[in-house]
Design a protein around this nucleic acid. Structure first.
Lengths: 213, 213
DNA sequence: GGAATTTATTGCGAAATGGTACAAAAAACA
DNA sequence: TGTTTTTTGTACCATTTCGCAATAAATTCC
């Protein structure tokens, strides 16, 4: 008896002028700009041009500039988690798993239509965190999440006998994170992928206990 | 016969109104601001207030805002090199030397009247490098310089028998740098010193081949 | 004492920035 | 057709930002 509500099972037809943008797509564009430029150097005109939305529409859809920044960074974290959690949980050997983790990370950091932009957490939010406690809390959370994921990964490898009894998963986890941070930094500085891959190879070798020692 | 030139062996007396600032001190203040805020979020009003110099004086003494930024970053690098090169060259054992290196780095990254500011290279210049090739070149140079210093350190330790024949000084050097980068990042995010020291301890253990394996 | 030199001060201009009010447009509904 | 609702588009505002011209101040030199 609700035939008047539009398509079966869907929301009632929205009144008013239709939106000229997709929120998800617009947020992705904003994310790209903020990741590259940080908060202060990314103007509302920049965001307006990238999203195709005028200023009032940006405010209506996302709130003020700071709120848009926070939503963008949150979106980045969600995307990164989605990309990485599957690899962290895979059933590969430790070495293979680490290799995959870093390959995914390199893809992320070296992506960008106009050049590599590194990691939003390491190169953008951490810088902006100085001015904003809420952003700092998000950065701390991101750092902690990554440390834990690596530690879990090493603990699992230890349980499976891939690492010696004396191995410390927490310490190795920190090393795993440090390698992410250093390649993010270098990617931002346009260090070529070959060099980054060499750094990864060496670090994986150390973490698996088969090289550099 | 040059008695008229002022004090013996010194420059001739400078004509004109005396300066109300010390260039070195002013540059140090500018450095502090830029390190914390980066280029875009640090305004000339901020710099003016911190240095006690009005805008025309800033321009007269240091050039435009970008030139001041570059001079500030260069000054930071000179200071960092001065602080670290002595430790890199010390005659301590490998472990002790690494410990000292990271202690000096932690002091640097945790310094600041109003909180820790991390590393200018990692957290500020690397971010700003996206917009300016000259800054990027300086960042690349800084990264490379640190990699080399660490590799030299490990090569020396290998020559002295502190590391096994199979040890790769370049790979370990990268790890040494990665540890610097990760503590810089975490210091910026206000991770407590205790935690940073634990990360350093674990990393040093891995690099010396005595722990976490 | 006056001229030359160097630096500080004041005020300003042009442009950029973040945010908002309001009118018009485009849809659903009665 | 008129009303209601939602979104777009335009114009505007107040403030900030960067850079600079002109003048005044403080020194040295002749």
């Amino acid at each position: 008896m609700v035939q008047k509500t539009g398509k079966p099972g869907s929301e009632p037809k929205r009144r008013g002028r239709p939106r000229a943008y997709e929120p998800d797509v617009a947020l992705g564009k904003a994310l790209d700009l903020f990741r590259k430029g940080g908060f202060a150097a990314t103007s509302l005109d920049d965001l307006s041009a990238a999203t195709g939305m005028n200023r009032p529409s940006l405010y209506g859809a996302f709130g003020d500039k700071r709120e848009l920044y926070i939503k963008s960074y949150q979106r980045y974290r969600d995307d990164a988690r989605a990309a990485l959690s599957e690899v962290f949980r895979s059933e590969l050997s430790l070495r293979k798993r680490l290799e995959r983790i870093y390959a995914v990370a390199l893809d992320m950091y070296l992506s960008g239509e106009d050049g590599p932009k590194g990691c939003f957490t390491v190169l953008t939010a951490a810088s902006d965190a100085v001015h904003d406690p809420a952003i700092r809390a998000m950065v701390i959370d991101a750092l902690s999440e990554l440390d834990k994921a690596f530690a879990r990964c090493f603990r699992l490898a230890k349980d499976k006998g891939e690492l010696p009894e004396a191995a410390d998963p927490v310490a190795l986890g920190q090393l795993g994170s440090a390698t992410i941070h250093t390649i993010a930094l270098r990617a931002r500085a346009h260090v070529p992928r070959k060099e980054l891959e060499a750094i990864v190879r060496n670090a994986v070798g150390v973490m698996c206990g088969t090289a550099a020692k």
